[in-house]
């Protein structure tokens, strides 16, 4: 990812106490995003920026997905990191 940087708060938010503090509520404003590739990261960032709490679930050791493995991206040959 070149332009997007996970804000520290977002990362902390992901990893924080997993039991929702709002268990009294009927409906939940939290969102779960399953899959931490470019699409899952973008969805999480947008939702967190727009004021929601997000759980980003990734089955592997790191987020980034297949895009992290690419050398560059077409048609601009930008680095895919």
């Amino acid at each position: 990812m070149k332009n997007e940087v996970l804000p520290t708060e977002t990362i902390q938010e992901f990893s924080k106490g997993l039991v929702s503090k709002n268990s009294g509520n009927q409906n939940f404003g939290d969102v779960m995003v399953v899959g931490g590739g470019v699409s899952g990261i973008q969805a999480s960032l947008d939702l967190a920026t727009a004021g929601f709490k997000v759980y980003l679930i990734e089955k592997g050791a790191s987020i980034g997905g297949h895009m992290a493995q690419l050398d560059k991206t077409f048609p601009t040959n930008d680095c895919s990191m």
Binding site: G37, V38, Q42, A50
Partner: peptide, 28 residues
């Protein structure tokens, strides 16, 4: 491709927002 993956992500975010708007910002 990647651009579609990015804007569908923002799109999915927007639709979650439609659904849960009343809860927005309570956690920030």
């Amino acid at each position: 491709d990647i651009p579609e993956s990015v804007f569908t992500a923002s799109g999915a975010g927007s639709q979650c927002g439609e659904l849960l708007d009343y809860r927005r910002g309570n956690l920030s």
